[in-house]
Design a protein around this nucleic acid. Structure first.
Lengths: 112, 112
DNA sequence: CGTATTAGTTACCATACTGTTACTACTATT
DNA sequence: AATAGTAGTAACAGTATGGTAACTAATACG
């Protein structure tokens, strides 16, 4: 975004943020991981609307962007745990504000 | 999102929020309107990467969702001003957190 | 032996999203 | 008379995103 039309374009911090977590699912996945590490199957249960394929893709992207960690245990059946990196944890205030807003303006309205 | 796997699915506040402002452009548009009302052309200049068609669409959706107002002046050449509604203004803390995060973790990293 | 479990992958398809180009109406300016 | 400016719209095209179903490996259980 250009913040001053008379000067050069300035990279917008909001734009940069959207590029990282802008997907339909990423904020939800991060929100789901905010307190604990979770296994792939756990995430799938907690976010029922997402397909496993898309969940895999989103997790890969989040890992590539350094927001989450992936820990694989070579057991049978296999076990994988996802958790937040320091960078991922630093998103907490953002997610928390989103949660607050959603609680106030969406959840309450639906009850009417 | 299901917040407790043993009970029924609970609507996730983050999910609801994403549905409203989850697009690639909506947070940026709202961020752009956070301080002042702006004309269509102004928005187009400040967000150069968006096409006019998509800008029109996104503005319509935001208006339909009650987040922004549209004021049309029947002059020649025509003038239209967009601004935030009370609901739109209530998003300020969310956008502000996004801005802070972006400043810290994206803008600074690019300078390296 | 047949089935269940976990965390995926692969192939294929449908829809959503985004972009480009050209066009509108009306007036002021050159 | 031609051009510029505003805020779009219409038609069309391409890309991105998301979904389904079938399949994998290794072991445990009945």
């Amino acid at each position: 975004m250009v913040t001053n039309t008379k000067e050069k374009a300035v990279p917008c911090p909001v734009t940069g943020m959207i590029e990282l977590i802008g997907g339909k699912w990423k904020p939800i996945i991060l929100y789901c991981l905010r307190t604990d590490k979770r296994r792939f199957g756990e995430l799938a249960v907690r976010i029922p609307a997402i397909s496993r394929k898309v969940l895999t893709e989103q997790l890969k992207e989040l890992e590539a962007d350094g927001l989450i960690t992936r820990e694989q245990f070579n057991e049978t059946p296999p076990r994988v745990e996802y958790g937040l990196t320091t960078l991922g944890k630093s998103l907490a205030p953002v997610l928390s504000e989103m949660e607050k807003w959603g609680m106030k303006h969406i959840i309450n309205k639906k009850k009417k």
